[in-house]
Structures are given as C-alpha cells and as structure tokens.
C-alpha cells in the first residue's frame, strides 16, 4: 500500500510505503486508487488506542467509503469507523533513481533536536558533508548555531551511532520550516536516514520496521538563479 502527496506550494513531497509483509493479512485483487482526505483519515485514526489492531476495508460495491475497524482483543471490543472517499484527480510524480553523494544515518531524535535548535536562529538550514563529518548550520540576525557530527564508528550502541557515507562532498540549503514538519515522524522509528546531493531534493527517510518507509523529499533553496544577476 502506498501513498503520495505534495504540499500545496509544491516544495515537498511525502511518500509512504507499507509492504505486504507489514500486515497480518493482506488482500488486494487489483491495483486501485483510493481517494481520501488526510484530515478525515486522521479523524478515524485518532479513534484507535495504542494497542488496537487496525483493519482497513474497502469493497467496490459498497459505496464510496473505507471502513477502519479497530479491535481491542483484551476487552473483546471492536470499533468501526467509516470514512467517505473523495474524488481525486492529481498528478503523481515519478521519482527517478538517484545515486546520492552522501548518505547519513543517525538517531531520529537527534536529528529532530538539531533541526529544532537551528530553527530558533534561522529560516534556512545549511548542510555540508565531507569525509570528515557532517555539519548543520543555521545562521540568522541574532546569531547562529552550528552542529557538527564526526562519524562515530566506535559508538557502543548501534542505535546511537551517526554513520556517514560520502562519495562526494555536498553543500546544500533547505527551508528549516519543512524539516521541522518532517521530524514529527520521529516517533515512528529510532533511526533517520538523510540522502543528499548538490542541487537535488534531500530525502529524509524513516524506516517502518523491515517492510516499509515514510520518505520526505524537499526541494533545495537555490542561491543564485542562472539568470538572476
């Protein structure tokens, strides 16, 4: 099951993939597009308790709605939430395979804190990465904040390590406002992976167990346009 959406100003794109292995049972007879309003879907999901199992059901002949069934086996309780579908006619972007110059993995919470710290100083986040390390910089009128990670191969805990693969150094700028939105996904996963290249959108990826991911793509800020003198 996959999902793609863009923000209204077409700067960022979110892509969610949940592979078959992630579900206890999964049945889908043919490829089908289901249009749902994110706001309405989250209303349904908010009804669920943390330990509930969730079943999603859509039957073509049963009208324009999707049923979310939340089951709490301890209490023998089920809750059916039906959400009306919506008409969708939108463009699906094809994401080309990209050989990224830098791939960095770190604890998701660490990345969240770094973005939050930098955003108090600046609207824009500069990331530079070389073999020696990766540096996040936020510079503003009141001052600046610079966070440097040297690759920690010796960290005891695998989940705490910051790993860095650098084929070529990069130096890119992004809007920090969007990054802060992305890091709301921190709870999903212990680790986050950043894939970077000069002048290409960054990928901020949160793996979901072994069988899925939530990826955010963010277009870089461009300093000088070719014909902006």
């Amino acid at each position: 099951m996959s999902l793609q959406a863009m923000d209204s100003s077409h700067v960022a794109l979110v892509s969610l993939k949940l592979e078959v292995g992630l579900f206890d049972t999964y049945r889908c007879d043919r490829t089908i597009n289901l249009g749902l309003s994110l706001a309405n879907m989250s209303k349904a999901l908010k009804c669920a308790n943390n330990d509930d199992t969730c079943m999603l059901k859509y039957e073509e002949n049963e009208g324009d709605s999707i049923v979310f069934t939340f089951a709490d086996p301890k209490r023998d309780k089920t809750q059916d939430v039906t959400v009306k579908m919506m008409d969708i006619d939108s463009e699906h972007l094809g994401i080309p395979d990209q050989d990224y110059a830098v791939v960095c993995e770190m604890p998701a919470a660490e990345f969240q804190k770094t973005c939050k710290d930098l955003s108090t100083f600046s609207d824009s986040l500069n990331i530079t990465a070389t073999k020696a390390g990766i540096v996040f910089t936020g510079k503003g009128d009141i001052g600046s904040s610079v966070v440097t990670y040297s690759p920690s191969s010796s960290a005891d805990d695998e989940n705490e390590a910051v790993t860095l693969e650098v084929k070529e150094p990069v130096n890119v700028n992004f809007s920090i406002k969007y990054m802060n939105q992305f890091t709301k996904a921190t709870a999903l996963s212990d680790r986050v992976r950043l894939s970077l290249c000069n002048d290409v959108p960054v990928v901020v990826e949160y793996p979901i167990e072994e069988n899925g991911f939530l990826r955010f793509y963010l277009a870089p800020k461009i300093d000088d346009d070719d014909n902006m003198e």
């Binding site: 077409h10 700067v11 960022a12 972007l93 094809g94 277009a219």
Partner: peptide, 14 residues
C-alpha cells in the same frame, strides 16, 4: 526555494 515538481516529473495522472 526550489520546486519539487521541477525535479520530479509527472509520471501518471491519478
């Protein structure tokens, strides 16, 4: 600010 749709092109109409 760059636009994401200038990097990725439309592959299908959903």
């Amino acid at each position: 600010q760059g636009r994401i749709d200038s990097f990725f092109s439309v592959s299908t109409q959903v």
